[in-house]
Amino acid sequence: MPIALDSSNELRFTKLLSTLSEYKASDLHLTLAAPPNLRIGDKIVSIPNEEILNNAFIQNIVLSMLSDEQARQFALKKSLVFTHSFKGHARYKVHCYMQNGHIAVSFRYIPDQILPLSRLMVVKAVRDITNLQSGLVIVAGDHGSGKSTLLAGLIEELNQTRQEHIVTFEDPVEHNFVDDKSMIEQISLGDDLPDLSAALEFVTHEDVDTIMVSAPLDAANIRIVLQLATMGKLVFCELTATTLRSAFERMVNTFNASEHTAIREQLASVLQVGVAVRLRSTAAGTLMQEAEVIKTNPAVVNFLRHDSFDKVALILENGRNDDMVTFEQSARELQTM
Rank of each mutant, 00 (worst) to 15 (best):
12 R>C: 01
13 F>A: 04
21 S>L: 09
22 E>H: 15
28 L>F: 02
35 P>G: 05
43 K>T: 04
47 I>F: 00
47 I>R: 00
49 N>I: 09
54 N>Y: 04
66 L>P: 01
73 Q>A: 12
78 K>C: 01
82 F>E: 02
85 S>I: 11
87 K>L: 13
88 G>E: 14
88 G>C: 13
90 A>R: 13
95 H>S: 15
100 N>W: 12
104 A>Y: 03
104 A>T: 04
122 V>Y: 04
131 N>E: 13
137 V>F: 06
138 I>Q: 05
149 T>C: 06
153 G>V: 00
159 N>R: 11
164 E>G: 00
164 E>N: 07
180 D>I: 07
183 M>A: 10
186 Q>W: 09
191 D>L: 13
195 D>A: 08
197 S>H: 11
204 T>V: 04
207 D>R: 13
223 R>I: 00
224 I>E: 07
228 L>R: 02
234 L>W: 13
236 F>H: 09
251 M>I: 05
255 F>V: 04
256 N>Y: 10
257 A>E: 14
260 H>L: 11
261 T>F: 06
263 I>H: 08
292 E>D: 15
292 E>C: 04
297 N>F: 11
300 V>M: 14
303 F>V: 05
311 K>T: 12
314 L>H: 12
318 N>D: 14
320 R>A: 15
320 R>P: 10
328 E>L: 07
